[in-house]
Every structure is written in structure tokens, then in C-alpha cells.
Write a protein that binds this DNA or RNA. Structure first.
Lengths: 350, 350
DNA sequence: TTGTACGCGTTATCAG
DNA sequence: CTGATAACGCGTACAA
């Protein structure tokens, strides 16, 4: 009795030659079937496809990579403090890659190092990457895009401003989202609103700050320099930035923190001083990380569709390769939404 | 004027033949140098190494993969709700892989699917993985280890119990760690201690529960069934499990939650009822995720060295390949430590 | 100790 | 439309 399953564990690996022999055609014809070559007799194609189906044959990616000079790997390059973002981008990209022949290779780099650019280049060149997704703040560096071009590697940059052609960008409109959030504060009656800005060198920090300033100027509210505190996108920096803001007299009745980690720091600092949130101080953050619903009170925040952006980024890369229905190009800009929880209330009466 | 840099962007890619020609030796000799073959004339080796250094040549991984029938890729396979763990394992593995020729390919799977095993097998086979790291609860499935053996792929399983040979395992001793945490509660004077268990099918849940029971029985404290609530390792499940515990009369004076997410849920549920933590209720969690220090009060918890475990797992896989000093085999078991924050206090007087 | 010839599985060229 | 034949870059018998 022969082995029942053709795709047995210890079955010898099938090659394109086996398929060619079984189908009674040449290697190249099988190759054409695999690569969806348009010029093929319908009959031969179906014959080959049947054999492929029956045998469970899958082409060897290593051999293809060698012959094509290009691997079926997508690289994810980042150097980002925001773990939530990395994870969500991974998830989105992975969703897009699922069921395709592509795999995701992750590659953190050190943007402080003098050799970052060389690192990235050699990563791309050595692995013959099919494409790379670049996360902020690395994505804000045009030199990386240039490297990709030079090496003939597709790329998509993620960011909070349009830095490149649509085919190379997925962008979130942080500025508008923050403006909307701050307008919400203003509608509640707040006039002294503090900002905890993100670190220099992050475009997102700049965009969010500008959104903040925009909403204020729209409402005719002036923004004294003292109401702006510098942060580093970390919890600790949020705590100390908040403390400097609370030292003011009169102190702000609301604070917009440029991300949730810092917003959590604001909450923490407020509690240390016995300041009630939201009755005496309103808080809004940015990111909608899980922490916002774990703390008390749950934080009002801005949610951006990171997973969808990751999916779009990967799809932009492989879209042409997988065809079917993906001819409709992926959107490039994604809009965020204000998530209202319990950290915002009207300001206390003076 | 000639191009200044030899490793110019548009320089043609160097092959082993170029190096051989430049060094005045044969292909095979260069190959030997690359693969650290011991039988080589010292002079020839140095000559070749010099050429390699000057030209900046790096061997083509695709060609090596094809010739060797094995890729220089490490796979990370998981299906885990604990994002913190995934990220930290990635970080640890990446640290170990940094500077080597290996890359990390991530592959989430759906353990509920009927085809998980096939998915994993085809992932390994198709990519000709050098090795895989398997995260819990997937790692608890012996069938996966068997697949790896069959396909000739190295593997390391991460888990909270010894399920395999040391070379195939990195394990954390959850049981002891939880026992220690609960002893701490007992030392503070607690006698009615509730447990929020993890989900069935997770070995970690079982181990943590056993550690909990161990500490209690050591102290001669009985554990009525009512003091054990089921959880799913999620915040929401922590909230509802805690509510059922707080419905008890007399209610527990302390609760051990099998992970931090649920511990945060306990804190949340306590606050909803106006129960003061830690004065009226002590809480201990497990994982030491960032959330523990963001909530109020900061949570006492158990920290396990996930990053170090990730590093060890990767090193076990590639150790023999990179030689130098890594002959000392990586440790297989890692111990956790109790991190004391502010969510534990002596029980209130009756 | 070193070199020659060939194979790995696929795609590309260019005939037919 | 299809099929020989030559790459792709590297590793390994085997011979020198």
C-alpha cells in the first residue's frame, strides 16, 4: 500500500522539474504558469495547474530569490519609542501579507548611530528586500528614501505629514485631529490650556503642536510661552512637564499631552498634588493606547488607525505583485478620531 | 577623476568570483575563508581576508540559502494575547541576532484554526528556516516540536514549565515566583487571599495557580473554592472576576491576579466600589508591564526577564553557528523577582 | 593545502 | 505559444 498522503512529511521535496515531467511539459512552461504569464495555451495551463494542485507543489523561494535577484521579504525598519505603534504596524502589515508568499522581517536600528544609513542600506541590499516599510521618526529622513531608490527597493514611509508621493506614503493627519481635540476643550469652556509637546526631531510633535496652536488662534485665545512644556513622549517626562505647568498661577484648567504616555504622567502628577481630574483639570492624550482605559479616570484621547495604516503600507508594496482586485490603490491619508472618555469636563469656576 | 568610494551605491555587486580573481585564488578558497574552514594556509587566508575587507564584499544570502538548503532566518511563531511579551521576546532575540547574518521573521498564527500545524510546517519548510522560537501557549504543544524535528529545523520553546531538553527550552519558574509573592502577602498578615486564575489551556495559568496554592498550604491556610475566580488574562475579565470576589462575605483582603492586565482590572473594580487600595485591599499582579507603574497606586508585581529569555532563545539557535565565546551554553531557566510597589499593605483590622 | 566540475531550483534568452 | 540552454552565486565532492 502506498503512502496515503502525497504531501507526507518525509516526502522528497518536489521541484519544478518533477512538475514539468508529470505534466509532460518543459520547466519553463511550469514557470510561466507560476508567474501568471499571459501568453499560454489555456489547455496547457490547466494541465499544469492540475498537477500542481494534486502534488501540493510550492516553488522554492530561495531559488526564485537567486534567479530574480529579489527576495519575497518585506522589511520593517524602525527606531521608535512607541511600542504600541510598532506592534500595531506589525499587525497591519502581517494582515496584508497573510496568505501571500511574502514574509515580514523586522529590523530595529539606532538612529543615533553614525552608521544607521549604512545599516539600512546593507539590510536592503543583502536581503534583496522586495520592499521596506519605514516608521517615524526614521521615515522623516529623505536620505533613506534615496537609498531605497538607489538600491531599487520599493518603500513606504509612515508619517504625520506628506513627505513623498502617495505611493510611498501612509500619513495620518495629526494636525487636524489635535485641533479637533483642542476645540472640544474650548467648547467646554477652557481658556487656559497647557500643551505638553513632543520631542524635537519628531515631525508628529511639530504637527500636533501646530494643531494645538491652530485651534487656539481660531478661538482667539492667546498662547503664552509658559503654557507650553517640553516632553519626550515618555511617562516620566509627562510627569515633570505637568508639574511645571501646575506651578503656574493661575494654572491651566486643561492640558493636552502629545501622547498617551505623557497624558498618563499628567494624571499621575495631578494626583500627587491632590488635583481632581476632570473636575479641576481636564486631560486629553493622543494614541489611544490601552493605558487610557486602564487608568482612572479613563482618558479622552485621539485614536489613529495604525493597524489600517500598516495594512495599507504593506499593500502598497505588494499590490502589483498579488493583483486580484488590488488595482484600486490603497488610501494614503488616514484620519483620526477623538475618543471621549472621562478626563474632560468644564473648567472649575474661578 | 575616478569614483572615490569603492563601495559606491551603483557599484556592481561583487561575487565570490571577483574576490577570487582579485586575490588570485580559486572560488573555493574564498568560500573556505568565509566559512572559517580550519584547513587553510595562514598566508592565503590573510590575503583573501584583506581583499574582502577592501572591497566590502558580503556573500549573497540567497545563493547560500539555495546551495545549503537552509536560510539564515530565524522565525518567531506565536499566538499570544500578551503584547508586552511578544515585543520583549522580539527585542531579546533581535539583540542576539544583531551583528550576525541572521534576520528575524515574525509569524503570528491562529491556534484555533484547524490548519495551524500545516501553517507552521509550511512556514518552516518553505522558508528553509534556520530555526524557530515558539512562544506560549503554542510552545506547549509537542506536535510543533515534532514538526521541527521532522523538517530538520532547530527550535526553542519558551514556557513556564520544562517541556523539553534544555537545548530546546527557555523556561521561567512562575510557580516559585508566585509562591514568593503570596508568601509576601501572608507575611503582611493576609489570610483571605483571592486568586484570579488565567485561562485553561495556558500552562502559565496552571503554574501560577499551583504556586498560589503552594504558598497557602505551606502557611496552613485553606483555600475555599469561592476564593478562586476564572480570568482570561484580559483587563475586562479581571474586572468581572474581581467583582465576584468582592461580592463574597467576608470578602478577601488581598487578591493575586495571574497577570498585570487583570490586576489593573482588580484595581478598577475596587475603585468602582470605593474600596481603597491598598488599605482595604492588597493587589499583586504578574508580568511587570508598564501599566503597573502608570496606575494609582503603582502595582506590586512579579517581573520575569523576558528580554533575557528572548536573547537566550536566539542564542541557543545560532550559538553553534557564530562560535566565538558562545560555547558556554545559554541558561535555560530564568528566575523572576517580586517588585514591591504600593498596592500591598497589611489587611484592615476586622 | 588548493582547484575543478557540478548541483541547488528557478527565471531569462532566444531560438523554433 | 513552447522548449533547450545558459545564467544566478555559492557549496561540495573529488581530484591534484
Amino acid at each position: 500500500m502506498p503512502k496515503p498522503t502525497p504531501d507526507d512529511a518525509n516526502a522528497p521535496k518536489l521541484t519544478i522539474n518533477d512538475i514539468a515531467a508529470l505534466a509532460g511539459v518543459s520547466k519553463k512552461t511550469v514557470s510561466r504558469v507560476i508567474n501568471q504569464s499571459p501568453l499560454l495555451n489555456q489547455a496547457t495551463r490547466e494541465k499544469v495547474e492540475a498537477v500542481i494542485r494534486e502534488t501540493g507543489y510550492t516553488p522554492n523561494p530561495q531559488a526564485r530569490a537567486l534567479a530574480l535577484g529579489r527576495n519575497f521579504l518585506i522589511g520593517l525598519v524602525y527606531d521608535n519609542p512607541n511600542q504600541q505603534m510598532i506592534l500595531n504596524m506589525q499587525r497591519g502589515a502581517l494582515e496584508a501579507l497573510h496568505g501571500t508568499e511574502f514574509e515580514l522581517v523586522i529590523r530595529p536600528v539606532d538612529r543615533g548611530s553614525a552608521k544607521v544609513m549604512d545599516d539600512i542600506r546593507s539590510f536592503i541590499v543583502r536581503q534583496r528586500l522586495y520592499g521596506v516599510i519605514i516608521l517615524p521618526p526614521l521615515s522623516e529622513n529623505d536620505a533613506i528614501a534615496r537609498i531605497c531608490d538607489e538600491e531599487g527597493c520599493r518603500y513606504v514611509r509612515m508619517g504625520s505629514a506628506v513627505l513623498d508621493d502617495p505611493e510611498h506614503m501612509v500619513v495620518s493627519n495629526d494636525r487636524d485631529a489635535v485641533a479637533e481635540a483642542v476645540r472640544h476643550l474650548i467648547q467646554q469652556g477652557h481658556k487656559r490650556i497647557g500643551l505638553i509637546a513632543g520631542p524635537h526631531g519628531f515631525r508628529s510633535a511639530k504637527e500636533r503642536r501646530e494643531g494645538f496652536e491652530l485651534a487656539l488662534s481660531e478661538a482667539g485665545i492667546s498662547l503664552p510661552r509658559s503654557l507650553v512644556a517640553d516632553g519626550q513622549y515618555t511617562f516620566e517626562s509627562g510627569v515633570s512637564a505637568c508639574e511645571s505647568l501646575l506651578d503656574l498661577s493661575p494654572r491651566p484648567t486643561a492640558i493636552f499631552a502629545s501622547n498617551d504616555e505623557m497624558a498618563a504622567g499628567v494624571l499621575y502628577a495631578a494626583r500627587l498634588r491632590g488635583i481632581e481630574v476632570p473636575d479641576q483639570l481636564s486631560i486629553i492624550g493622543f494614541d489611544d493606547t490601552p493605558i487610557t482605559s486602564r487608568v482612572w479616570p479613563p482618558l479622552t484621547t485621539v485614536r489613529w488607525p495604525i493597524v489600517a495604516m500598516g495594512r495599507a503600507a504593506a499593500l502598497k508594496l505588494i499590490g502589483t505583485a498579488i493583483g486580484e482586485g488590488h488595482d484600486v490603490s490603497e488610501p494614503s491619508t488616514f484620519s483620526s478620531t477623538l475618543i471621549r472618555r472621562a478626563s474632560v469636563a468644564p473648567p472649575p469656576r474661578d
